[in-house]
Design a protein around this nucleic acid. Sequence first.
DNA 1: AATTTGTGAAACCAAAAAGTTGCACATATA
DNA 2: TATATGTGCAACTTTTTGGTTTCACAAATT
Lengths: 106, 106
Amino acid sequence: MRRDIFQAIADPTRRAIIALIAVHAMTPNAIAENFHTTRQAVSRHLRILTECELVKQEFQGREIYYSLEIDKMKEIDNWLKQYRKIWETRFIQLDQILLANKKKKK
Amino acid sequence: MRRDIFQAIADPTRRAIIALIAVHAMTPNAIAENFHTTRQAVSRHLRILTECELVKQEFQGREIYYSLEIDKMKEIDNWLKQYRKIWETRFIQLDQILLANKKKKK
DNA sequence: AATTTGTGAAACCAAAAAGTTGCACATATA
DNA sequence: TATATGTGCAACTTTTTGGTTTCACAAATT
């Protein structure tokens, strides 16, 4: 049961959880209130997110506060970097074409 | 069978296909040579990628060249943007703390 | 001490995903 | 025209996923 970050963010509920706890740490019960599923289902999503370290726990008595491990999000950004390079060069190329056409018009 | 971009990139084989065709357009057979699965399995991955418009086809006789629809990748970048904002402000905050400490030392 | 509350985990189930095999079909090539 | 090649698709199977129900257990509260 090897889970990676990309699989973690594939589920829309998990992305919603991420968006929620990005603002501030929340307990599983508080998180579950925002969804139409059971608390246990949310708990499982949290386990998956914790397993791949996208989320961290902070124990406070019997309550557990979950918050986003923002550094882990950078891994996605890092993967995207190679493609960002592509669309940026394309943009520059397009820019140069537009510029060349402008000159021609003159 | 609603598929979104995040589900599309969840599969490691599909990410590998994306990486391959990002360099230059390739036919399904050429792509399949790089994997241990059957050509049909790769074909299915290509269908999924095409359905969510991450990939485009170019017909050339009986061959089909697949290439990356780079614009679609920006959607992931767009989603990531909100979190990038978080880690950048954290970085600035850390920076200010370090600066403050430096001043104290003096 | 008894009860309530917050939580995770296991067992089970339905749905979806990913793979394989076998096919159909159109385009090249002999 | 007959055959080879490149491709997609449907049927079937196995594995994975996401959900629910039921439990266990520790920390608060009564």
